[in-house]
């Protein structure tokens, strides 16, 4: 006899439920409306099949876990879990977590950087139908007319115009827990400087994920790339004219329909010379 979820079951039933676990896990990683990086969950990754010019889609943990031999020397899952989140260091000092969700493209192949070996040898693609970013607006003080110190944050969904799915450059790494032997494939996506649209949306940092054209995605996976070319593709900035975007409800992360457009009357349109702001869906339907 075995126990599943604390209930005594037969061995056959136990195996059946374990099989269901596998089916469901493989299904779920492809079927998520919103993936929050800070959950460090699995996401769908495209990687080359070893020795072939062919691809496979596999689940990987989003949040790169570096080789245990390099800084920050994470050898066990416990160290990974602690190190990823804000925590107290051995001296009792409060330190930020090292989440390794995003690899800054400008430094990706720099010698001594944690992502270098993966960028040169293990490149992959994140599959996305859109990403989420917050635009910061500083309201004016009614009395002084000066901007307030605390920004109001408006969420946007950003996509690749005319495409249901697109690819973001990524790098991956296999890692094993020294205590349990658990082996995990983890990945980080690369980021580049924001274009006219994405920079205005992510106006606190002016960054965007490296969204690739089909040709660049193929080259990223299968090209025999020099360091310089890795750097160039990782830094590729999709032209702003190819970006689609709209605003979302502030509670979209807990919504049944997180992709649903939400119009904010007080929000000024993006300041893009020569470009018309996309009208919200509700307004379009009126005309």
């Amino acid at each position: 006899m075995c126990y599943y979820n604390g209930t005594k079951v037969t061995r056959d039933e136990y195996i059946r439920l374990k099989h269901l676990e596998k089916l469901v896990a493989n299904y779920q990683f492809m079927d998520r409306d919103v993936i929050n990086g800070f959950d460090f969950g699995v996401t769908a990754i495209v990687k080359p099949v070893e020795g072939k010019e062919d691809i496979e889609i596999v689940p990987m943990e989003w949040g790169f876990i570096p080789d245990p031999g390099v800084w920050p020397f994470w050898e066990t899952r416990e160290q990974v879990n602690q190190g990823r989140r804000p925590h107290k260091d051995p001296r009792g000092k409060f330190v930020d977590g090292l989440n390794f969700l995003n690899a800054v493209s400008e430094e990706i192949v720099k010698k001594g950087k944690v992502y270098r070996t993966a960028a040169l040898n293990r490149r992959c693609l994140f599959i996305s139908s859109g990403y989420y970013e917050w635009r910061h607006i500083f309201p004016l003080n009614k009395r002084t007319g000066e901007p307030l110190k605390t920004a109001k944050k408006y969420p946007y969904r950003v996509g690749y115009k005319g495409r249901d799915y697109f690819f973001i450059a990524g790098i991956w790494q296999e890692w094993s827990d020294a205590e349990t032997g658990e082996t995990v494939n983890s990945a980080a996506l690369t980021t580049t400087s924001g274009n006219l649209v994405t920079g205005h949306i992510h106006n606190s940092k002016n960054r965007m994920p490296t969204m690739l054209t089909e040709d660049l995605a193929w080259e990223w996976l299968f090209g025999n790339l020099s360091e310089q070319r890795v750097q160039e593709i990782a830094s590729f900035q999709l032209p702003w004219e190819d970006i689609s975007y709209y605003t979302l409800a502030k509670d979209f992360l807990s919504s049944h329909e997180p992709w649903k457009e939400h119009f904010y009357p007080e929000l000024p349109p993006l300041d893009i010379p020569g470009a018309e702001a996309p009208a919200p869906q509700g307004q379009m339907e009126l005309f």
């Binding site: 006899m1 599943y4 979820n5 209930t7 005594k8 079951v9 037969t10 039933e13 059946r16 439920l17 269901l20 676990e21 469901v24 896990a25 779920q28």
Partner: peptide, 19 residues
């Protein structure tokens, strides 16, 4: 995710997947 399963006494119960 919830699934119907049978316990050792062959009675049906609901369980979460995974545990």
């Amino acid at each position: 995710i919830v699934a119907r399963a049978r316990n050792a006494d062959k009675k049906v119960f609901w369980t979460s997947i995974p545990e």
